[in-house]
Design a binder for these strands. Structure first.
Lengths: 226, 226
DNA sequence: GCGGTTGATCACCGTTGGATAACGATCCGG
DNA sequence: CCGGATCGTTATCCAACGGTGATCAACCGC
């Protein structure tokens, strides 16, 4: 199993106890105490599932959930202390996969986590990544924009995927060479420049003024979110 | 636990023995023998900690460390064969989290790795650094002020990062030359003066009366004091 | 106040990085 | 075998970046 769980919960004692419980159940756990940080961790780490308290200082859990769902389909389980069902409904509407109401028995939580992960694997993760108006279906090898399909070539598609998997992260040309063309590839990194160019021509509204794939001069390229 | 360790060491026997030791201690290990490859692996793999020999063919360990620290806060432990402390000091200044001097007892190394990882989780290294009203997202190479994005150049951004990583710490011009431009850089330290000035022009409310980046006459600069 | 030192500011301009177009090799379906 | 598509390579153009030197202003010891 060995899935990586991100746990966002402001109550310290709950956080520590539950983290232990999850670790004993065989999960790798990254825990933090507020929404901002949760989003940061999520952006940095490769996470298989997110455990999200609704009540959080700063950005609350629902907001975090919405933010994650903007670009990722990682399973999310919400934790809610409230007895009323409003948060649950809103949470599920936002794309949460399950919820657990506090107080909970740790074994129950572990069971739910397992269940959601299993479900996710069963439905063979749709692997649809969204980035702005663009939708990428890695499995189907298709990318659409506002519903219309983009006629991307294989390398263009791979390049787009790599960029889209970590939106906002800047990739140097060398990283992209490794990730898209493979580590053994020997060749000028100017190839990346051209590849980006060709991708932009198909993806951007106005390729001369790219808004989706932006250039960071002296560093590299990045996708998304102004 | 199951952390992923990247191990960069050119001496083959040390590499193999230590890799085994680390694996027996429960870590996943990726090993390689030179700096270039180390950086490539780092770019490709999801790594939790880097073990870095100082003496390496090609790019040396200090350079690799600097390169990684340009955009990542992944914990780094330096291995140094030298008895003199210069490398250690430079390494720590460059942002290494610990160092171990060779020859070392493998158990000691494992203990240090565990300690640094634990520390890292405790201090929960943020991808986004805040300094006053300024937010810095190192991975995205992006800095905002009151939400509005700052149009910084690559060097300006790196300079800001270095200063922001240790707020209130005073940096001499020579330190900044090393940390931002690299220690091979030969050139007048007045360059730093100009760079600071250009950064201030974009960051300060009133660049003629800087409040964020202050000058310590006869010494250097520091960010966010008061 | 005076001279010396340190930092701020400005303008200059060579270099670099990135956009863009064009070329050629290779692959593939018909 | 031919025609189109794809992708690696190369040449050219332009803007922006950043290193340098000159000049000006602030500060310090005497």
């Amino acid at each position: 199993m060995d899935a990586h769980v991100l746990f966002v919960e402001d109550d310290r004692s709950i956080r520590e106890v539950t983290t232990l419980e999850l670790e004993q159940a065989g999960f790798r756990v990254t825990a933090c105490g507020d929404g901002h940080e949760g989003l940061n961790m999520f952006a940095r780490e490769q996470v298989d599932l997110v455990l999200l308290d609704v009540m959080l200082p700063g950005i609350d859990g629902l907001e975090v959930c919405r933010e994650i769902r903007r670009s990722h389909r990682t399973p999310i389980i919400m934790l809610t202390a409230r007895t009323d069902t409003v948060d649950v409904v809103v949470g599920l509407e936002l794309g949460a996969d399950d919820y657990v109401s506090k107080p909970f028995q740790p074994p129950e939580l572990v069971a739910r986590v397992r269940a959601v992960l299993r479900r996710g694997q069963a439905t063979e993760t749709p692997a649809v990544v969204r980035a702005g108006e663009i939708e990428i279906d890695e499995a189907a090898f298709r990318a659409t924009r506002d519903g219309r399909e983009l006629a991307l070539t294989a390398t263009e598609f791979r390049l787009l995927c790599v960029l889209a998997r970590r939106p906002r992260q800047v990739f140097t040309r060398e990283m992209l060479l490794d990730l898209v063309w493979g580590y053994e590839f020997l060749g000028d990194s100017r190839l990346v420049t051209v590849a980006i160019q060709r991708l932009r021509a198909k993806v951007e509204d106005d390729p001369t003024h790219p808004t989706l794939i932006t250039t960071v001069r002296g560093v590299g390229y990045r996708l998304g979110s102004a």
